[in-house]
């Protein structure tokens, strides 16, 4: 088991390094960083001054190496755009994103798991159909559109909820729903599928035969087994939410890490983008790693892989 974990950890680190290198190269390919930083109203002199100031005239590999060297010592440098330490910028923006991600995944789990269970207990019932409809809609609705519909309904028509900002807990309600709803269908279908499979298995029949109550059969025996793949799926979804809430953050003006990443790419703010990519890939790696370990712990056959 330890060997498995170490092997996985080494692989994860290699992935992180590769991701950071590729993204660095891609940023350079996407346009002259000095022009992007200088902005659209810059004159030739402005661009030249910025190129020299940040050393963009050095070879790309040298620039990457110098970034990596500093990053390994924990120094992510200063944002070219904001002129503030990247670390403090990230700390501030990640709070919003992590809060949103936690709310989103909780919302998804709290709605998807019960619905999935009920749908499995009564397959093809009205509830099952309703759950199917919800999940199809959730998969099909683009989040920018769903977000705007919620804004029209709850901010403009009913005036119950604020449309943008992070000032109060009320500001997080709509973003949570939009973000969580996107993750919900997969979790629900997986719960339903898992439950259906488990419910028809022998040990459930045994449990029923020995006279266990229906509630005990459902939650103690069935759900506990059916939920295992759901946990690993939720872990991956969580990684996605932390790195991929760009659209939601932009619509609701949340100023989290996703939006910062999106904007920093457009601005070619290399230190910020590099640090964010490292953090995002770490999220993915940590969550998939946890899911792997969890699965391996549950199923010894996977430890070989």
């Amino acid at each position: 088991m330890l060997q498995f974990i170490l092997k996985r950890l080494g692989l994860a680190l290699l992935v992180a390094l590769t991701v950071s290198f590729i993204s660095f190269i891609l940023l350079f390919l996407s346009g002259d960083p000095a022009s992007a930083l200088a902005g659209e109203s810059a004159t030739d002199q402005d661009v030249a001054a910025i190129r020299e100031l940040y050393g963009f005239d050095r070879p790309m590999l040298v620039q990457y190496a110098s970034w990596l060297f500093d990053a390994l010592r924990g120094d992510f440098g200063e944002s070219y755009y904001f002129r503030l330490p990247v670390a403090s910028l990230l700390a501030e923006r990640l709070q919003v994103t992590m809060l949103l991600g936690l709310c989103g995944i909780s919302f998804a789990l709290l709605t998807a798991v019960p619905l999935g269970v009920v749908a499995a207990i009564r397959p093809n019932s009205m509830i099952d159909r309703f759950a199917l409809f919800l999940s199809v809609a959730g998969q099909a609705l683009p989040s920018f559109w769903f977000g705007l519909i919620l804004i029209v309904a709850f901010s403009i028509k009913l005036q119950w909820l604020p449309a943008s900002g992070t000032a109060t807990w009320k500001h997080f309600i709509m973003p949570t729903i939009v973000l969580g709803y996107y993750a919900m269908p997969a979790i629900m279908r997986l719960t339903r599928g898992g439950m259906l499979e488990v419910l028809s298995s022998d040990y459930i029949r045994t449990a029923r035969a020995k006279g266990a109550s229906e509630g005990r059969v459902m939650f103690k025996h069935a759900l506990r087994n059916a939920i295992i793949p759901v946990v690993s799926l939720a872990a991956v979804q969580m990684g996605f939410m932390l790195g991929g809430s760009i659209v939601v953050e932009s619509i609701f003006a949340l100023h989290g890490a996703g939006y910062l990443a999106w904007e920093s790419i457009a601005r070619n703010d290399l230190p910020t983008v590099q640090a964010l990519i490292l953090v995002f890939s770490m999220f993915y790696i940590v969550f998939t790693f946890l899911a792997d370990v969890l699965n391996a712990w549950l199923d010894p056959r996977m430890r070989a892989g």
Binding site: L148, I151, V152, S155, I156, Q159, P162, A163, S164, G165, S250, I251, F252, A253, H255, Y259
Partner: peptide, 18 residues
Amino acid sequence: IRTVPDVNTQLAEMFNGA
């Protein structure tokens, strides 16, 4: 002054008075 990147959201906030 708040930064609200999406124009549609800005319009919504105009409508609800924020």
